[in-house]
Design a protein around this nucleic acid. Structure first.
Length: 472
RNA sequence: GGCGGCGUUGCCAAGUGGUUUAAGGCGAAGGUCUGCAAAACCUUUAUUCAUCGGUUCGAAUCCGAUCGCCGCCUCCA
């Protein structure tokens, strides 16, 4: 399996430090607001990578942090006249609701910044002792010039950054590129005691601390959006590698942006949709399929037309799932067994995913499979039970467990459903009589009205079948 | 100004030296099935990969130039 590593700008063979264990860190949200659908893309693609590693048999420790103290949270708490804790609590709750809707697997741990203040202080102390950090009246900064490899992730050169047009001016820093490790508390702000006085941590230090505590000195995989490469991840490397004197992360994975009309979706541009709006409009399978149909590193345009195209595609997969589930009940192993080797599809799927998580190709394999199975289904009445079972398992292992676009268990029948089915059967038998007497208008009326409430009637060779259209 | 990415059919999107006269999805056209539909299946839908040059026996894939689009360098997934 190869992974494209931002650090080396190359695809590299994936070699975990301690197989079959894999440690993976995914940059989580700052909980000051609902996250948008662009954030959702990185959370979902990160989830798919994690799921595929598990599919491959790795034991993944997957950590996603929650940034629950920072400038934006403080700003929000002032605006809403509530505490920063209350702001964080509200949006952490929303975060969990949202990722559940997105069918994102729960991480091993969701550490919070405010629960790691002591660990952060320890790292800063180390950096200070090594002369890499300096204290200016209670503000502690990292001296970028002391880390010779600064810029190795982003490909930036310190000298050129300094002459650039957009470097922040801050009189307290020795060098404009130096960044905050510890921020001195301002009047009324939440703060913690530290050797440098009351204050709160800078943004980057939390990830260094949580990685160290929950995943160890060197992490196998660290993932996040493209915009975190610089300065966030660059700074994490600088802090961690200076403090620990070991490689911080072996494989850096970065996700492309979700754009709107070719422009980056962002809070500041105001061109965003929250994940919760989008996920209440489309089922998770549609959105996850949409994301899976393009590569994680590339940009992707958000567009309702494209979402509904993905919806049609998903329906195709779900139709087959429905058909297979029906078949398995009535078939046995005396039935015809198609000359199709499901392992071939499995291999193709794995080859695609092994190549830097090429989900578009993996999805293409699933569609090939769907077409080929449908072909068998349309030319043969009954397929052997083993084959149907294997087909279901293929879809379960790929589309469900790895991509998370379908859910085979979801349709488990309840008693109410049985009653509904009996009622529909009564209606279809009445309709059958009407058709026999060529009362087509009457028959169509039954079909149309059932269709309106989501019950689809389909007349086939063996009589009328029905399916209940799933809402999500 | 520095750094990086991208430009493939009507739309989305894989492919990055020969197995590709370019996968898959959506759309469109025709057909099978049907009382009519729906679903499903079959056929068709890029001799061409922004443009122009070059390297090579061979390029969408490598090199150079040009045009266009986007991102990072400030919080940002």
């Amino acid at each position: 399996m190869v992974i494209y590593n931002t650090l080396t700008k190359k695809k590299e063979e994936f070699q975990p430090i301690n197989p079959p264990n894999v440690t993976m860190y995914s940059c989580g949200p700052t909980v000051y607001d609902y996250f948008h659908i662009g954030n959702a893309r990185t959370f979902i693609m990160s989830d798919i990578i994690r799921r595929y590693l598990e599919y491959k048999g790795y034991k993944v420790t997957y950590v996603q942090n929650l940034t629950d103290i920072d400038d934006k949270i403080i700003k929000k708490s002032i605006e809403e006249k509530i505490s920063t804790e209350q702001v964080a609590e509200k949006y952490i709750k929303a975060f969990f609701e949202d990722i559940k809707k997105m069918n994102v697997k729960v991480a091993t741990k969701y550490p919070k910044a405010t629960e790691h203040i002591q660990e952060m202080i320890e790292i800063i102390k180390k950096l200070e002792a090594k002369g890499v950090a300096y204290n200016k009246d209670g503000n502690v900064f990292y001296d970028v010039s002391k880390f010779p490899e600064y810029g190795k992730l982003s490909g930036k050169v310190i000298d050129e950054l300094e002459s650039g047009a957009r470097v922040e001016v801050n009189d307290e820093k020795n060098n404009p590129l130096d960044f905050s490790l510890w921020k001195k508390a301002k009047e009324g702000e939440p703060s913690w005691d530290s050797p440098w006085g009351k204050g709160r941590p800078g943004w980057h230090i939390e990830c260094s601390a949580m990685n160290l505590k929950h995943l160890g000195v060197t992490t196998d995989i660290h993932a996040g959006g493209n915009d975190l490469i610089f300065p966030h991840h660059e700074n994490e490397i600088a802090q961690s590698e200076m403090a620990n004197e070991k490689t911080f992360v072996n494989y850096w994975i970065h996700f492309g942006f979700l754009n709107i009309r070719k422009e980056k979706m962002s809070k500041s541009l105001g061109n965003f949709f929250t994940a919760r709006e989008v996920f209440s409009k489309y089922p998770f399978g549609v959105i996850r399929l949409f994301f899976s149909q393009s590569h994680y590193r590339g940009p992707l345009d958000y567009d309702d037309e494209l979402l509904s195209a993905a919806g049609k595609g998903l329906e195709k997969i779900n139709n087959l799932v429905y058909e297979l589930k029906k078949q398995i009940e009535k078939s046995d192993d005396n039935c015809y067994s198609p000359n199709i080797n499901i392992d071939d599809y499995k291999k193709t799927f794995e080859n695609a995913m092994d190549d830097d998580f090429n989900t578009p190709q993996a999805v293409a394999t699933i569609f090939d499979f769907v077409r080929d199975i449908n072909k068998e289904l349309s030319s043969n009445n009954k397929i052997s039970k083993t084959f149907v079972g294997d087909s279901i398992n293929f879809l379960k292992n790929t589309a469900q467990h790895v991509l998370g676009i379908i859910d085979l268990e979801k349709e488990d029948k309840s008693e109410d459903i049985e009653l509904v089915e009996d009622l529909i059967n009564i209606l279809t038998s009445i309709r059958k009589k009407a058709k026999a007497e060529k009362l087509y208008a009457f028959a169509d009326d039954i079909r149309d009205r059932l269709n309106e409430i989501g019950v689809i009637l389909q007349d086939g060779k063996n009589g009328t079948e029905f399916k209940i259209k799933r809402k999500s």
